[in-house]
Write a protein that binds this DNA or RNA. Structure first.
Length: 290
DNA sequence: CACTTGACCTGTCCGC
DNA sequence: TGCGGACAGGTCAAGT
């Protein structure tokens, strides 16, 4: 569920809440949610202080004073929700859309000095959390294979075009979703940016002009930045570090808008299947390139 | 090799 | 109202 803007929204929240706090305890349910917990938790997590919270692609990194980092991937239904004085003061005990925590989808609970807690919830159990030496994080397979950050200042339109052109025979949506090509794009922002650039998601990259790809580069950055400004997209599960929904979907042009009018031409938006994923598009604005 | 499909889980929604 | 099947925003292994 969480793509780049959702993970970035969580990061912004946690970066306000966590640095300086000391971890005093950890509980976790399955080995799967926290595969290497047993080995290192006592030495490198409990007792450590949070230094900073960083995002790379859809991965969140909580860097600790022990020189280890918690590396967290939320996959489809993961949530990281903080409960403590700081976001529940002043007689407003629950602005959160989630109820009491922990609940039945809580996989890991981090406890901080003072009793504040961070909950890693994950209904579908696809997500994971690992404790890894900070210096080694960039070298783990998943991180090493990631493509560039689309919002990085040094990531140019030409870089974008060059990387997409390496996959001429794939449909363009599959390439946008490939994390080794560009990091952080998921289903929502793939559909939204392709609509913005008037490109049909099934178009093979080889059939899409450089001009269109340059437009796609701009549209992709636009939707990612807009979504971060709106606190991300909440369809079902996504909430930020305080348990609050994001509002990007109120601004979406095609995603989850099948049956409604295209905001550009009025044609009815359809939902179909491309690259094995539910795909939303305007059949008038977005024609398959040949 | 490049590319596509199924599996991983749980919950929900839709049609019969 | 009950039940089976399809589907859900991500990623990887296995398949063509």
């Amino acid at each position: 569920m969480p793509e780049l803007p959702e993970v970035e929204t969580i990061r912004i929240g946690l970066a306000r809440l966590l640095p300086g706090r000391q971890v005093t305890g950890v509980t976790h349910d399955t080995v799967k949610s926290f595969p290497n917990a047993a080995a290192d938790v006592d030495r490198f997590l409990v007792g450590a202080k949070v230094e900073q919270v960083v995002r790379r692609a859809k991965v969140l990194l909580i860097e600790l004073s022990s020189k280890y980092s918690l590396v967290i991937h939320l996959k489809m239904t993961g949530q990281l929700v903080f409960r403590g004085e700081q976001n529940f003061g002043a007689g407003h005990p629950s602005r959160s859309l989630i109820g009491e925590l922990p609940d039945k989808s809580t996989r890991v609970t981090l406890e901080f000095s003072g009793g504040d807690r961070l909950f890693f919830n994950d209904q579908r159990k696809f997500g994971w959390m690992k404790l890894i030496p900070t210096a080694e994080v960039p070298n783990i397979d998943f991180m090493r294979r990631l493509g560039p950050e689309p919002l990085a200042a040094e990531f140019t339109s030409q870089d974008f075009i060059t990387r997409l052109r390496r996959r001429p025979g794939s449909n363009i949506k599959a390439v946008l979703l490939d994390q080794t090509v560009i990091a952080g794009v998921g289903n929502i922002y793939a559909d939204e940016s392709l609509w913005g650039a008037k490109i049909h998601p099934s178009s093979l990259v080889v059939h899409v002009s450089d001009n269109k790809l340059a437009t796609l580069y701009k549209e992709l950055k636009y939707v990612l930045e807009l979504s971060i400004a709106k606190g991300g997209s909440t369809d079902k599960n996504y909430v930020d570090s305080e348990g609050k929904k994001g509002s990007y979907l109120a601004f979406a042009r095609v995603f989850r808008r099948e049956g409604l009018a295209c905001p550009r031409c009025g044609t009815t938006i359809i939902k179909t299947r491309v690259a094995g994923r539910g795909t939303h598009l305007c059949p008038h604005c977005q024609r398959v390139a040949t």
